[in-house]
Amino acid sequence: MPKERQKLSALIITYNEMGYIERCIESVEFADEIIVVDSYSTDGTYEYLENHPKVKVIQHPFSNFTHQKSFTLKQASNDWVLFLDADEVVPEQLKKEIIDTVNSDTDLAAFWFYRKFMFTDRPLHFSGWQTDKNYRLFRKSKARFSDKKIVHETLVVDGSSGILNEKLIHYCYKNYDDYKAKMLKYGRLKAKEDFYRENRYNVLSQIFKPLWKFVNHYLIRLGILDGKKGIIICYLNALSDFERYRELKKLEKKNELAYYLVMP
Rank of each mutant, 00 (worst) to 15 (best):
P2G: 05
K3M: 13
Q6F: 00
T14E: 07
N16R: 08
I21D: 09
E22L: 02
E29L: 11
E33T: 06
V37H: 02
D38W: 04
T42Y: 00
T42L: 10
D43K: 01
Y46H: 06
E47I: 03
P53T: 05
K54C: 01
Q68D: 09
K69H: 12
S70R: 12
N78R: 09
D79A: 05
W80S: 06
L82N: 07
F83S: 02
F83P: 00
F83C: 01
L84E: 05
L84D: 07
L84K: 02
D85F: 03
A86H: 07
D87Q: 03
D87V: 02
E88C: 12
V90L: 01
P91F: 03
K95W: 01
I98Y: 02
T101A: 08
T106S: 15
D107C: 09
L108I: 05
A109I: 06
A110G: 14
F111P: 06
F111H: 15
K116A: 13
R122F: 01
W129E: 06
T131I: 12
D132A: 11
D132T: 12
Y135V: 14
L137N: 03
F138T: 07
K140N: 11
K140I: 03
K142P: 00
A143P: 04
R144G: 04
R144S: 14
S146D: 13
S146E: 11
D147K: 15
K149T: 15
I150H: 04
I150G: 04
I150M: 12
V151G: 07
C172R: 07
C172S: 12
Y176F: 13
D177K: 10
Y179E: 10
M183Q: 15
L184M: 07
L189T: 07
L189F: 13
K192E: 14
E193T: 07
R197G: 00
E198G: 00
E198H: 12
Y201S: 11
V203K: 14
Q206N: 14
Q206H: 12
Q206P: 11
F208L: 10
F208E: 00
F208A: 00
K209P: 00
K209E: 14
L211A: 15
V215E: 08
V215R: 07
N216C: 01
L219G: 09
R221V: 02
R221E: 11
R221S: 08
G223Q: 04
G223K: 06
L225Q: 10
D226L: 02
D226C: 02
G227M: 01
G227K: 03
K228M: 08
G230D: 08
G230Q: 07
G230F: 07
I231W: 12
I232E: 14
Y235H: 11
L236W: 08
N237H: 10
A238T: 02
E243F: 08
R244K: 13
R246S: 14
E247S: 12
K249T: 03
L251R: 01
K253T: 08
K253D: 14
E256A: 12
Y259S: 12
Y260S: 02
M263A: 10
P264R: 05
